[in-house]
Design a protein around this nucleic acid. Structure first.
Lengths: 351, 351
DNA sequence: ATATACGATGGTAACGTTACCATGATTTCA
DNA sequence: TGAAATCATGGTAACGTTACCATCGTATAT
């Protein structure tokens, strides 16, 4: 008798033979133990231990038709923001039968279209996307996909499920905090121009609209973000608009860059210039002065997004399909100084 | 006739029927086109297009016995250092039939042991590990694994293949640069105490040994690294050793923290205090003053590590199994000042 | 011209698991 | 007490592909 088996790995048939039962009973004992009598279950478990049996995942998937891949499409893997999200995703998935396949869309809608189609053909068990701004093609393509889909980062109308927060509201709260501190000539700094960044800009505009006589001073670049980029942009801004007294930055990288530029020019923060960032990266709290920012629990967002997918895959009912995870404005030293006649809303929190 | 097929997805048999050939010929036409005559190849390709046929990966793996999973075990997913490595890994793997499965060892040898065993049972096509310091158990377990293994980050004796650099040499070069700048009372700051960190500490010691009369001043914590941690550690150090004039930091996070603490205490950098970091994170160049550091091409390291694995998997001969990717000491403003009678080796680069 | 090698193609049997249905034993209900 | 329902278990046939071997026709060597 001929065999093609290359690996010495034991099969379910080996276990069945050793335990003196049928192969299918072993299969059942593994997947749903209470379907099997205690006696057989014990014999099978012992056989599994003795042979060091590990099920062949590919065969399981082929036979059951059930994929164990959760496709995860993110715009960046390097960005700390997504690193935290990824950590949450992996932690939640680890103890399950599922595993993650990551795709990097590089902030490109075109690349996202390509990857969604590519991954969808592989029939993933579920899919996780960042943001709500997929192309019309992709949205309608996914609208009648048979697998659950969760969109993270933002709060709003999702294809299937979603968890995140309103970046517009968050940015508005941040800028409102600057206004409460007494700053009046407030600029906005942005980079990359991805959808979240643009919504933060919108929040900035809304907050400013509530400040009589204030008009927006904005500087955005489509180039990738970074501390050096923040410094260069803020330098450019200072050369143009000489009378600004605060800057709301689209993220903490830019904010740290702005702080460095202030240091280089001898501008006192927060006395002469207020600075607030976004994301609450670790460095923000340690800077001198500590940088005010907006915190979103990204790790938890990743965890809960996967949790929602798992619930659906297990047939459980998902409570709320669209979750607002909220945000916190973190008040620190970089925005605590000036008070030009307005009762400055200072906070006891932070550095 | 009954069928269990749930998905309407076309199979290789459908393609074969439409093209009027045998299923195996379709299989060959996909895997190695020159084995099939041009006429049939064209007919098959057209049938594939028409049916929108995509091969079932699970069935391929089951039938061929060849896995397409490359297991990647890293100590952290959040750390920017590994984020860059991961980017390189994904970019190199993307156009191949392989895909990545990431495990997070959290800088724990125990967790690494567990994950190596777990992944190895799944029979990956290849494995990528960080560092050379696996437990004896894991090393001997992997020594007779039948899949190729590459260890990244460090240069030295690998289980199978390796790519990285000597962190000891790199740190020695960094500290030697401080000495060349005229600094004499040089301290070392470290966190996490992972193997790379300890080798950098050793490099620091070696460099100091070449400086007559100098004795090591070291402060290391097993706690995770970070900017805040760097600030706290350096503050502690300054309270103890009041006469130090420079600090070599085990990474850029710590270095930035040290810089912030100097700012907070009004210590002039580089005049009163030289600072050098490690890794050349993006922020280092943008800080005020710009922070000197050691650069390793992590993205390229990730790419080439996967390249080595792919070469082996395709039966190609790998040139050198143990590659030294080298490093560069990046001289910037944070180490350019003092000159106490020694000819300071200032650099035109950076700053 | 004939034996031999080679190239192109196909049939059949795996790969290791699970779905479906059948069987016999046990329990439940009228 | 007998019929129906339920439970535990097993046999067989898929899942969709590739490995192995066989076949046939054509080119090459003697």
């Amino acid at each position: 008798m001929k065999t093609r088996r290359a690996s010495g790995r034991p099969t379910i048939a080996d276990v069945a033979r050793l335990a003196g039962v049928g192969a299918i009973t072993v299969s059942r004992a593994i997947r749903d133990p209470n379907q099997v009598s205690e006696e057989l279950r014990n014999r099978i478990e012992e056989a599994i231990r003795e042979l060091n049996y590990v099920p062949n995942v590919q065969a399981q998937i082929l036979a059951s038709g059930q994929s164990n891949v959760i496709a995860v499409l993110l715009p960046s893997l390097t960005n700390s923001v997504y690193a935290d999200v990824i950590r949450g995703i992996y932690d939640k998935v680890a103890p399950t039968r599922f595993h993650i396949q990551i795709g990097n869309t590089r902030y490109s809608e075109q690349e996202e279209d390509r990857l969604v189609a590519l991954f969808a053909w592989q029939r993933p068990a579920a899919m996780l996307l960042a943001g709500l701004d997929q192309s019309e093609t992709t949205r309608s393509f996914l609208a009648d996909a048979e697998f659950p889909i969760v969109q993270i980062m933002e709060h709003g109308p999702a294809i299937d499920m979603g968890i995140g927060c309103s970046h517009k509201d968050a940015a508005r709260a941040a800028v409102t905090h600057l206004i409460d501190c007494g700053y009046r000539r407030i600029a906005f700094l942005g980079a990359r121009k991805d959808p979240r960044m643009m919504r933060r800009r919108d929040g900035y505009r809304e907050a400013l609209a509530a400040l009589p006589g204030a008009k927006p001073i904005e500087l955005l670049t489509p180039e990738p973000s970074g501390v050096a980029r923040g410094r260069a942009l803020f330098s450019q801004l200072l050369d143009t608009a000489t009378d600004i007294d605060a800057v709301a930055c689209g993220n903490d990288d830019l904010a740290l860059g702005a702080l460095f530029e202030c240091q280089a020019r001898g501008i006192a923060v927060p006395e002469q210039m207020g600075i607030i960032g976004f994301n609450d990266l670790e460095m923000a709290a340690a800077a001198v002065p500590a940088i005010s920012t907006v915190r979103i629990d990204r790790y938890e967002m990743g965890r809960r997004a996967i949790g929602m997918l798992l619930d659906r895959l297990e047939g459980k009912k998902v409570g709320e399909p669209i979750v607002d995870i909220g945000f916190d404005v973190i008040r620190r030293a970089s925005t605590s100084a000036v008070d030009q006649g307005v009762s400055a809303a200072r906070s006891a929190k932070g550095g």
